[in-house]
Design a protein around this nucleic acid. Structure first.
Lengths: 345, 345
DNA sequence: CGTTTTCTGATGTCCGAACCTCAGAATGAA
DNA sequence: TTCATTCTGAGGTTCGGACATCAGAAAACG
């Protein structure tokens, strides 16, 4: 509200350095035609006065518009639906910041499709966020985008070997380990089998979670035996069938870890078998379903990666990269959330 | 980068509505002198075109500077030190957004001091964030600030009965319940005593955590008996003495829950008694110490409220309130984080 | 019908930085 | 010393909106 406290402007810096506004501007924007000694005087003045350029004014003057494309999986997976929703919110926010988001939904399981979709984005966008499949064709497409000057961030699932600018998502090995520790500790001394259900090992995030999980259980909870991983393709019917069979065939089943989606099917199977109270069930992604399952005691913990955070983080990374603004990388780390019945949001 | 995609400006809205720029401006800024029918035409045009005012331009034009004061406890408590540090970071960020933060450190345990410090802020700031003590004098001071047009948010510890604009912090009852469930489940069937250490019951957040914790243990884990709460004043020496005594005098001690600070003292006592591996120890606030204790297995879980999030959230709430901008309240909820050894950031 | 009163349009300035041009100063080389 | 190169200063324009002023149009009123 106050108009009293006046900011330090470039004018002030120029005066302090004993140069003109134009020169100060040249130094700060790296334009040619300033002697080293003069540039140093300006930089000194910036430091002395603690000058911070006014972001609002800079963006306005630049008058640029940034176009981003978010490439999301086509499937009807709950988490991906939530992510798409959050991307829409983010778009809304970006609209007040000279940036626009288009969303493109493609079949993630088809590397060729994904790769050519990505390549079709060249020249039409300034930045791309993609839920990527770790496949050579996709990696090549990402590198092509990067080479043509488009900023690429991977979202949720990474392609570490590519030239992507940034990965926005959790460490999935750590997430799997977290699930392992929770099951191990909740089982506390009990002996028996633990079921493991994955969507598909072709997805890097699923494979990593599985790895982290089995690593912890094998290493630290020898009383618990991890059964062979079952593929669910993230479908409720299949997870239900798998869970039912496990409950039937493994009488010593102590816990279940679902690496992917399809928790509803598992919950149904557990309820049907009347095992809600003693079977430990841990899964991923906080949704209406899973929070209900937590409250009812069917699920014991949910490991979550916040869709809203990821969407906003991707947008911030792209925006600040394109606008050449600094980024607080520490703020952009996506955390592995653990939700119990008691700390639901 | 692209200059092609042009934003929708107020100009466009005015043209679409068939009015002049001045009239469109009057409608959007609620200035008098526009007939209802005309105003509706403008609003329709806004909706049709999906006009979103350019925040950067608006702030620039307004040319206002906002002054905020963060009132933090004077003590050397680790969490509060981290919070102060994050407030400094936030100040840095705000400086590029026409806003300035001063930090004021006062003795929280003295309601009179806190209240008069708050009242001294009247007229000098546009917004105040305060780690508040829930006391009538403090509540009155907050209400005075609010009445004189200053936006007040409570930080970390709330004063629910006051007219504060917003509370930035976690639900501490839920945090206590979370600790209770973790201890209950990690103890899994064991029978015995659980020690409870609080900084001081005078702090609302400590009292609430204690309440949530005992509620869960009493209700759901009857095999675990919660011992009488011990006051530590958040000091390492006292927590160490308390923990040592509990370890000595309660041979059936299964777990320890520290509601406040001073985890270092407890860790020392546990290590000295050689009980790291079997005693369950849960505390609050992720610091260098506590994450080390997690890794070493001395602590079993840390419940955290992110200092950076809270500081930034408070700043965003104050800024958007003062600038009359909309707020995504869903984004401003502070979560109760659970950290195990495996999901440390 | 004329006269108030109430609207509306036209126009301008300002915010702080980005980016541009051009004239003149300082510097270097010949 | 002269001429060609750098530098540097001065000035302007632009971005999109906030806010102000004033003249003229339209509506309300007696």
């Amino acid at each position: 509200m106050s108009r009293g406290v006046s900011r330090i402007t470039l004018q002030d810096v120029a005066r302090e350095a004993g140069v003109s506004l134009a020169t100060a501007d040249r130094v700060l924007n790296g334009r040619a035609g300033v002697r080293g000694a003069t540039a140093d005087r300006v930089k000194d003045a910036v430091a002395r006065l603690g000058y911070r350029p006014n972001l609002a004014a800079a963006r306005l003057a630049r008058g640029e518009t940034y176009r981003f494309c978010f490439v999301l999986p086509a499937g009807a997976n709950v988490f991906m639906r939530m992510l798409a929703e959050q991307v829409a919110n983010t778009a809304n926010w970006l609209a007040t910041n000279n940036a626009y988001i288009d969303t493109l939904r493609v079949d993630v399981f088809a590397p060729e499709t994904l790769a050519s979709a990505l390549e079709g984005l060249i020249g039409r966008y300034d930045g791309v966020a993609v839920v990527a499949l770790d496949h050579p064709r996709v990696r090549a497409a990402i590198d092509d985008l990067t080479a043509s000057g488009i900023a690429v961030v991977t979202l949720v699932s990474d392609v570490p070997s590519s030239h992507r600018l940034h990965y926005v998502g959790i460490d999935n090995i750590a997430a799997g380990r977290t699930a392992g520790t929770l099951i191990g500790r909740f089982a506390a001394g009990r002996r028996g089998a633990v079921g493991l259900i994955v969507g598909t090992p072709a997805l890097r995030d699923h494979a990593e979670r599985q790895f982290g999980f089995t690593q912890v259980l094998a290493g630290e909870y020898p009383a618990l035996k991890v059964l062979a991983a079952q593929e669910s393709l993230d479908e409720d019917e299949r997870t239900e069938a798998i869970a039912s069979r496990l409950l039937r065939e493994a009488p010593d089943l102590v816990g279940l870890y679902n690496v992917g989606a399809g928790n509803r099917g598992i919950a149904a199977a557990i309820s049907a078998a009347n095992r809600a109270s003693d079977l430990i069930f841990i899964g991923h992604d906080l949704t209406e379903d899973t929070s209900r399952f937590l409250l009812r005691g069917v699920m014991d913990a949910v490991i979550n990666q916040d869709a809203g955070h990821q969407s906003r983080s991707a947008a911030r990374v792209l925006l600040s990269h394109c606008a050449g603004e600094p980024l607080l990388s520490e703020q952009e780390r996506i955390r592995i959330d653990i939700f119990l019945r008691d700390n639901l949001p």
